[in-house]
Design a protein around this nucleic acid. Structure first.
Lengths: 250, 250
DNA sequence: CCTGGATAATTGTCAGACAACTGACATATA
DNA sequence: TATATGTCAGTTGTCTGACAATTATCCAGG
């Protein structure tokens, strides 16, 4: 008597596999290098050309691949490191690792409490609703220098204080990504410049009034629920954030 | 004897048409509203389901649409205004119009001169090469208040001083977009926070040391040439910039 | 040496089919 | 009655095979 898996875990594999396989294939390739032809690639990945082309289309969309009819598909020449841009949601820890650095966490504090009105709004919940949340504050340092001040708010239904064990690397995002049943899809991140107040200045070891990059982000699941509301401050110069912007109508 | 059109202009229409048609269809729709089924939509747009699905995939990728197998395709519920994010390259003027505002241009200056080493690097040219460029500086104001200080560098082969006529609205990007033979594809925009120096402060009417959002951007054509190198400073609070970030591996 | 045409290779698009999933309703069962 | 199960129509997910459009290359002819 086999118990059926909960449907939330029944992810259709083919398309996702294809995207990952293509990403893995491109990673070590040189700019301008040609990919195998579509029929060959489709057979190798075990999918049809139609499915393969849907995946390739998204890479073209991101500016990672260039397709030329009658010629072939090539790795775009302007990509220094694959997907280093903001359009991919990546934890600072993961990003630092990719750059060969290691991060430490200081000033770590976490509490379970009721959400404030601002936090309720950030989580997309009505003001009238009461919600218990886990709030995680910490400062990320690289080589002893503070580089980011992070503040996350997550409803207790998604993450509890007990989930932050000794191995916690400072990334709430990595924790949430590890819970596959959450089906995370995208994050909406608002970007602004802000002067450091006394609180930021002390934690990030900069003087008051220093310019900081501020991200205000909401992390969504596929069914459009907000899992995480976060406010982050970054000291300029340590991380390089960029965005690839499409020209409209193309 | 028909002279063949330059191949650079022979854009395949179907796919592009489909993307535009979908965008136009979605624009007036409410979040959560359902789209026609794929067979119906494909027939209406005059393309096959495979082509339609390639286009739909890119909208799902951008977080604008949500597809649920066995149910249908829906407008995502979190999109306040369609494609207001940084992932689409849009001039400030265009963005302001969309928000019902109008912009003015002050401090407009433009010169044709030799590129400095920094500008050569920004344009992806070797230091040893001499290149003549058009440099355009100006401040954008909304209701008399300065909101952005823009600095563009464009090789003379793409734009000349004579092209900036009386109707110039302050957007070099709009000018370049109007030249269809340029085949612009994407812009790589680096984002950082910076304190206003004396020059910025005077032009933007803020005090020295105020936090500004700084964009350093390179505008690429399809054949990977850099058409425009620009540095822009934004006064916080006037424009809202955001990015939709995909979760990796989805 | 140059020119033009044939040719092979590759991407772009299409039509039709079936599989997998969902939701609603009807039916059987405790 | 309340709960579980079966059935069915509708929708998205994928596959197959084919043909059209475009490009680079080679080769014959001038």
């Amino acid at each position: 008597m086999t118990v059926p898996e909960p449907t939330a875990l029944n992810i259709r594999l083919p398309y996702v596999q294809v995207e990952e396989a293509i990403a893995a294939m491109i990673a070590p390739m040189q700019p301008g290098e040609q990919l195998p032809t579509e029929p060959v690639l489709a057979k190798r990945l075990g999918v049809s050309r139609a499915t393969l082309r849907e995946a390739l289309r998204t890479f073209v969309e991101r500016g990672i691949l260039v397709r030329r009819q009658g010629v072939g598909t090539f790795v775009a020449s302007r990509i220094p490191t694959l997907e280093a841009g903001l359009e991919v949601l990546e934890s600072l820890d993961h990003m630092a690792q990719r750059l060969g650095l290691s991060t430490e966490v200081t000033h770590l504090e976490s509490v379970e409490r009721w959400a404030t009105p601002t936090e309720l709004a950030g989580l997309g919940l009505p003001e009238t609703q009461a919600a218990e949340v886990l709030v995680v504050d910490r400062v990320i340092t690289v080589k002893g220098e503070p580089v980011a001040d992070l503040h996350d708010v997550v409803p207790l239904s998604y993450l509890r204080q007990a989930d932050l064990d000794d191995t916690f690397n400072g990334s709430v995002l990595d924790l949430l990504l590890g819970r596959s049943h959450l089906m995370l899809s995208t994050s909406r991140t608002e970007i602004i410049a802000e002067e450091a107040d006394a609180h930021n200045a002390a934690r990030l070891n900069v003087r008051r009034g220093a310019a900081l990059l501020k991200f205000t982000a909401q992390l969504y699941t596929y069914d459009e629920k907000i899992v995480d509301y976060s406010v982050s401050y970054f000291v300029p110069g340590h991380y390089k954030f960029h965005v690839m912007r499409r020209v409209q109508g193309q």
